[in-house]
Simulated assay, not measured.
Amino acid sequence: MATNWKVDTAHSEVQFKVKHLMITTVTGYFKTFDLEVSTEGDDFSKASSIVFTADVDSINTNNEQRDAHLKSADFFDAASHGQIRFVGRQFEKTGDDTALLHGDLTIRGVSKPVTVNVELGGIVVDPYGQTKAGFTVDAKISRKEFGLTWNAVTEAGSVVVSDEIKLHSEIQLVKQG
């Protein structure tokens, strides 16, 4: 029998990191996102459905001008492509509490296979009787593979924005009744 899980957004975060001018790292977040998972009991290695979405308009890098640029056609093109979507296809255990999750990531209408590292923090029952599962999820992607190709060059010849994007999420799921 399928068990359904839904993200607890109050106890979860989705962030990305990118090198700026190749000397510092800028961190951004998606404030609005969703994740739904269907499993067999509490066994996430047998998930039959894993669907994550993030609202591009909710991007936040703590700089309104940069956020507006990221939402523009130069980057995510939020007006035409309002969501980022990841659909998990295969959960591959690599250790007792670690796994690789293979799936398809769609950004700007471009879908590519991506593998993310997943670490299970544990499954507990909270003080309100809800069963919760915690995960840390990490990955690296090439932004250019998804059509995010805007860049500029400094006087010294280095690029403004690196191609590699580091993704990091802390996810808490709530078992649905």
Results as ranks from 00 to 15, higher is better:
85 R>Q: 13
127 P>C: 08
93 K>G: 11
64 E>H: 13
14 V>N: 00
15 Q>H: 10
133 A>V: 06
25 T>E: 13
108 R>H: 06
116 V>H: 00
55 D>H: 09
11 H>P: 03
14 V>T: 05
112 K>S: 09
85 R>M: 04
16 F>M: 10
132 K>S: 10
47 A>H: 03
93 K>F: 08
56 V>D: 01
26 V>K: 04
176 Q>T: 15
92 E>A: 13
51 V>E: 00
82 G>C: 04
153 V>P: 00
58 S>F: 03
6 K>S: 15
5 W>E: 04
27 T>H: 04
101 L>K: 06
121 G>I: 02
57 D>M: 10
32 T>D: 14
54 A>G: 05
35 L>Q: 01
52 F>M: 09
27 T>E: 14
97 D>E: 13
67 D>H: 04
36 E>M: 09
110 V>N: 10
137 V>A: 12
166 K>P: 07
165 I>P: 04
17 K>H: 12
80 S>W: 10
4 N>E: 15
61 T>M: 07
126 D>C: 00
44 F>E: 06
113 P>I: 07
67 D>N: 09
176 Q>G: 00
24 T>S: 15
161 V>C: 05
117 N>H: 11
98 T>N: 07
57 D>H: 13
154 T>W: 11
108 R>Q: 08
123 I>K: 11
123 I>Q: 12
30 F>Y: 11
23 I>A: 14
31 K>P: 00
150 W>Y: 12
42 D>A: 13
84 I>C: 10
133 A>I: 01
160 V>M: 12
63 N>Q: 12
133 A>C: 00
8 D>C: 03
130 Q>H: 14
172 Q>V: 12
151 N>C: 02
96 D>M: 09
163 D>E: 08
109 G>N: 06
54 A>L: 12
32 T>Y: 06
105 L>K: 07
29 Y>Q: 13
171 I>S: 04
123 I>D: 02
76 F>M: 10
54 A>R: 08
67 D>A: 00
2 A>F: 15
145 E>R: 11
153 V>T: 15
121 G>A: 00
95 G>A: 13
68 A>Q: 14
58 S>L: 10
163 D>F: 06
80 S>I: 07
129 G>C: 06
70 L>F: 01
99 A>R: 01
93 K>E: 14
62 N>L: 15
175 K>W: 02
24 T>L: 12
95 G>S: 13
97 D>C: 01
129 G>F: 06
46 K>E: 07
90 Q>A: 15
63 N>D: 14
131 T>E: 02
116 V>P: 02
64 E>F: 06
87 V>Q: 07
11 H>M: 09
90 Q>R: 12
150 W>E: 03
113 P>C: 09
142 S>Q: 05
164 E>D: 14
46 K>I: 02
11 H>Y: 01
25 T>Y: 10
86 F>D: 01
29 Y>G: 05
25 T>H: 11
31 K>M: 05
92 E>V: 15
4 N>W: 08
104 D>Y: 10
169 S>M: 15
161 V>N: 11
80 S>H: 15
110 V>S: 03
133 A>L: 01
160 V>Y: 14
134 G>P: 03
5 W>N: 06
